[in-house]
Amino acid sequence: MGEKMALILQLLLTSRKIGIKNEEIVNYLKEHGLKSHRKEVGELVHDMNDFFTLFLGYPLIHGKPKRGYVIENEYYEDGELQLLVDAILFNKDASAKEKEALLKKLLSFSSIYQKERLSMMPLLKTEQPFSLILNLTTILHAIDEHKNITFNYIDYAISNYHPVEITSKNGNGKTKEDYNVSPYRIYLDNNHYYLIGYFSKRKTNLSMYRIDRMRYVRRIGGVYVDIQDQYDLAGFITKRFHMFASGEEVQLTFSFKGVLLREVVSRFGHTIAVKKLKEDWYQASVDHVLMNDGLKMWFLMQGANVHVDEPITLKEEIEQDLKKALSLYQK
């Protein structure tokens, strides 16, 4: 019975016909070596809708006079599905094989028409020397069970004019290559996953590792050291993931050309105060801005279209960085 239900759903999702009649479903099941009849099809659809009503909150399959059975409402809204598909396609660390498997699962309840409506970017056939899904699964289980993990952590060196992976030898395990860590939390930043945990060589600080640089991740025994309550994890994340924030909040004032208005709003929000200066220049004031290297880099990237007025310390740092950069081109 389960196989028949799966085939009926498959037919409804993949057929380009608007409405599939009982006879067509009976014939489709027969093509797959399964006997059925009109009454059974009706009973199967009824049972399927009982499941979907519990699972989704509404029946998925509707019977229409003269048209047959149809699926009127997709499991995902188009926008929801597009968001999820893009999150998979643009992930930097998952392999092409892992992305294909995830997309297959994600799109399993989508009709052929919904799949065609999506804006699907070509899947680049990239491979990775590790499994992101396996790494994440192993770490998440270890966090849930309060188990330690061990792994090798990679760095890079230049060989034959190309970067190659090398294994870091700063570990604390059976060999210098083994890192034994008590994992606390996974965090996503700039499309890379990071692990925050306890590493015995840095007992007074939390440690952070990029998961795509971890190899041979596995759970191990030993005492799970849980000291995360001694730290402000939110503060740690802010400082480490928001470009090394100093923690100092300042009143930021800067001038910019009108061409940057959208970028300014995107970076600082709609609540900033902006006044017109001369020609196409504006001045913005932003309260409670966290000083960090990311803020400075943002201003540097805008080039001659922006000028920091206050705080003076940030202005002077940018001036020094610009002088250093210019000196490299004047040699």
Rank of each mutant, 00 (worst) to 15 (best):
I71K: 01
H46M: 13
I8C: 03
Y75M: 13
S182P: 06
K97R: 11
H146M: 15
K323F: 05
A101P: 00
E249A: 11
E3Q: 11
Q114A: 06
L277K: 15
R240V: 00
E23P: 00
N148S: 13
H146C: 15
V41S: 04
D78T: 15
G63L: 09
T238G: 00
N305E: 04
M208R: 10
A234Y: 00
S285R: 12
I227Y: 04
F109L: 14
E40R: 11
G173A: 12
K176S: 13
A94N: 00
Y198R: 01
V45E: 06
A245F: 00
L34S: 08
K92Y: 11
V265R: 14
V85I: 12
A273M: 12
V308H: 06
E74M: 09
Q330I: 10
P65W: 05
G171Q: 02
D321I: 01
E77K: 15
E100K: 14
K125M: 08
N135V: 03
I139E: 01
L60F: 06
V45S: 09
V70T: 14
V181M: 11
H288Y: 05
K176H: 08
F51G: 01
Y179I: 11
L29K: 02
E249M: 06
I18E: 15
F51K: 05
L326Q: 13
E127Y: 08
E263S: 08
T238H: 07
I20P: 00
R67K: 14
Y76L: 12
P183K: 10
A245H: 02
Q302E: 10
K176R: 12
I158H: 09
L9T: 04
E98K: 12
Y216P: 02
V250M: 11
F236S: 00
I158Q: 04
P59C: 13
K323M: 07
M208Y: 06
T150Q: 14
R185F: 04
T204W: 03
L7C: 09
S131A: 09
K201W: 02
R240M: 11
